[in-house]
């Protein structure tokens, strides 16, 4: 008979790498920017590309944030999220076009007013649409992933076709408001004004979301609900109501993202939401399903990769996102910042 193993505790310091582990995702974005700088070599093109990449990333984040939160909270995966993007873009752009004399005037105040009204209209419509969507489409299929995917996909088709019915099947081209056209020159690099605005708006949305989630009571309930919904309900909160609120907010954000994307591209089509969904899904998967911070980092990375690679090797840009996703999933199979479920 052998002796029992000797239980001598060993004291090992946590390695530097392990202590850095939580920060690793956050470091990815600066690392990627730095890598891009050395790969591109030219200061001015690097600056232009980085700004447009960040703008793109921010817009994708605005669209993705609602989706990831909805999933984290209620385990609902909404394939129809792209419909809100399309609807937001069409409503917002139509509003701005209807306010043509404001948007065409060379006054910053009037321009911003027109765009602001457009955004407001878009968010209002997509918010209401989100509420209807949740009630009619998603409510009956809670807890059944397979049906959720199928039904929300059906919802996407129907909404898209309704857009085609109202606005016609052709793509709509338009110009941005006067003062948002053109670029400013900084350090020899041309930075488009609109992109800077998009970065600012995206950053504001992210900061606001973080503040709401971290500093307010409702944010606390949402975060607790993501981690362990049953427990929150047992404590007497009606998580269903919270969820409806989050769903509406997420839909409205998708609408905002749609307007921003529409003005970025200066063309809108009924299928744009569907196309954006691909990027949004990649972002959500990279970030870790349910994590807002993860989606933020993921969105910036996708934006950076796409812009840098399109500049360096245009043909490879088509698969750069898939390659990025593959690499991240090999590193962390759950995504960068998976939400820890206390179940």
């Amino acid at each position: 008979m052998s002796d029992a193993p000797d239980h001598r505790p060993t004291m090992a310091a946590v390695s530097f790498g392990a202590r850095l582990d939580w920060a690793a995702p956050w470091l990815m974005v600066p690392a990627l920017i730095l890598l891009g700088f050395f790969a591109i070599g030219s200061m001015s093109s690097w600056l232009t590309l980085t700004v447009s990449a960040l703008a793109m990333g921010m817009m994708i984040f605005v669209m993705a944030s609602g989706l990831t939160l909805v999933f984290g909270l209620m385990d609902v995966i909404n394939f129809g999220h792209g419909a809100f993007v399309s609807v937001g873009a069409f409503v917002g752009v139509s509003t701005v076009l209807a306010l043509g004399h404001w948007a065409g005037a060379p006054s910053l105040v009037l321009n911003l007013l027109a765009v602001g009204l457009g955004v407001l209209a878009a968010m209002l419509v997509t918010g209401v649409l989100g509420w209807i969507f949740e009630r009619v489409i998603i409510r009956p299929v809670y807890g059944a992933h397979l049906k959720q995917i199928l039904i929300t996909m059906g919802g996407l088709i129907v909404v898209e076709q309704v857009i085609v019915m109202i606005w016609g099947p052709d793509e709509i081209f338009f110009a941005r408001p006067e003062t948002l056209k053109g670029a400013i020159t900084f350090a020899g690099a041309a930075l488009e004004k609109y992109r800077l605005l998009a970065v600012a708006v995206g950053l504001a949305v992210f900061v606001a979301m973080r503040l709401v989630l971290r500093r307010t009571r409702i944010g606390l309930i949402v975060r607790a609900g993501v981690e362990n919904g049953e427990m929150v309900e047992a404590l007497g909160y009606r998580l269903g109501m919270v969820f409806v609120g989050v769903f509406i907010a997420g839909s409205a954000l998708a609408g905002l993202g749609g307007v921003m994307w529409g003005f970025y591209q200066e063309v809108i089509t009924a299928g744009m939401g569907e196309d954006m969904m691909v990027l949004v899904f990649i972002v959500v998967i990279i970030g870790g399903l349910g994590s807002v911070e993860g989606a933020f980092i993921g969105a910036l990375m996708v934006g950076l990769m796409q812009n840098y690679i399109a500049f360096l090797e245009p043909k490879a840009a088509l698969i750069s996102n898939i390659a990025l996703m593959t690499a991240i999933l090999m590193w962390r199979p759950q995504g960068m910042m998976p939400v820890v479920k206390a179940k």
Partner: peptide
Amino acid sequence: LFSLRVRAIFFAMITLAVASAVAVLVSQ
């Protein structure tokens, strides 16, 4: 291998992404 290992729901999203990438690739 990539998606089913973690979560079956990943599969739906990843297939959507890969399929659209392949469609773009073919037309390009």
